[in-house]
């Protein structure tokens, strides 16, 4: 086995330069903006970014005709992220093969929201993952709603959450009654896929190192990143980091990677905290009763048996 790409071992080693810089109008405390920063930091200057419509397009471009990107960034329609990634990768490959451009490693990172990748752009994403373009990373920043248009439920919105499409009210008290779709498992179902992972902003270097691994994996890759969103999750902006940490420590967000056909858990919460520590800090779950929250905790407990078993075997077992 090769020695693999060089990873970042401590926070002091992170590249100091940002390629997604200050001067954008995402929410104060926006988790998605933070993820954009960390990912582009890890990817470095030789990167092309693609952004399907969503908060990360609308809040980052055209403010008085200025832009916060220090690397090329390109907007695609909401469902077109998958195809745009392939298109740019194919164009670069053709130019290099024909000798019209000097051969070099260029990262292509498509940042899709859950609307952009899990719902509307899902087919394009799935198509893209069957190609062989290296350094092509599809990154789903999952703020668990269509945030830009005012927090509507998507297929990654968790059970119980209030959104503007699934408001908790007098007639129907439970908000969203659908269960959260696991996009990373779906990505892993593409045969011979080189690298699939889940991440969030906690632990500190996990996401950046996963981006480095994904870009160096030799094929298209996919990372599903849980993204705290103060507006949509209904919490005060300073809690963004804490919520990501609690999502991991309560086991509600499972950190794993699937590389060259091998499954590995990256974090085992020991002891796992009760999910109420995570849920009770968010307004979107404020209507849930203690019993309902206990029920979610039991579901998480049950799932974790399978995650641990998968970890032991190095193979994915569906947890449901």
């Amino acid at each position: 086995m090769s020695s693999g790409p060089s990873l970042i071992r401590s926070v002091k080693e992170i590249p100091p330069i940002d390629y997604y810089t200050s001067g954008h109008r995402t929410c104060a405390g926006c988790g998605a903006a933070l993820i954009y920063r960390l990912v582009t930091k890890a990817a470095g200057p030789n990167t092309i970014l693609i952004g399907p419509t969503g908060c990360m397009y609308v809040a980052n471009s055209h403010q008085f005709l200025t832009s916060p990107y220090a690397v090329p960034w390109y907007h695609t329609q909401l469902g077109a992220g998958g195809a745009a990634g392939i298109g740019i990768a194919a164009a670069l490959r053709a130019l290099m093969v024909k000798g019209k451009r000097k051969p070099e490693d260029i990262n292509i990172i498509v940042f899709g929201g859950d609307g952009g990748f899990a719902d509307i752009g899902f087919s394009g994403l799935s198509m893209a993952l069957t190609y062989d373009y290296p350094r092509l990373l599809y990154l789903l920043y999952d703020n668990e709603s269509y945030a830009n248009t005012g927090i509507q439920a998507s297929s990654t919105t968790p059970w119980g959450a209030t959104t503007t499409f699934t408001p908790s009210g007098k007639v129907k008290r439970i908000g969203n009654e659908r269960y959260k779709k696991n996009m990373a498992l779906l990505a892993a179902a593409h045969p011979k896929i080189k690298y699939v992972a889940t991440a969030t902003i906690y632990p500190p270097l996990d996401l950046m190192n996963k981006v480095i691994k994904a870009l160096n994996s030799g094929g298209p890759s996919f990372i599903h990143v849980l993204t705290p969103c103060p507006k949509g999750w209904f919490y005060a902006p300073h809690e963004t980091y804490e919520l990501a940490r609690l999502a991991v420590e309560t086991g509600m967000w499972v950190l794993w990677e699937y590389s060259e056909g091998k499954f590995k858990l990256n974090y085992k919460p020991r002891p796992r905290k009760h999910v109420k520590e995570y849920l009770r800090r968010q307004g979107r779950f404020a209507h849930l009763t203690d019993e309902e929250i206990d029920m979610i905790d039991k579901m998480v407990e049950e799932e974790w048996k399978y995650w641990l078993e998968s970890d032991k075997l190095g193979k994915i077992i569906l947890p449901w």
Binding site: I17, Y19, T21, S22, G23, H24, R25, A28, P45, S61, H62, Q63, F64, L65, T66, S67, P68, Y69, A70, V71, W73
Partner: peptide, 24 residues
């Protein structure tokens, strides 16, 4: 702007001084 209304971003290491957010 570049053809197609392409905006110039800041140079690496700079910030986007055309849109400051400290006023918030």
């Amino acid at each position: 702007l570049a053809p197609g209304l392409i905006e110039f971003g800041p140079k690496p290491g700079d910030r986007n001084i055309g849109f400051t957010t400290g006023e918030w």
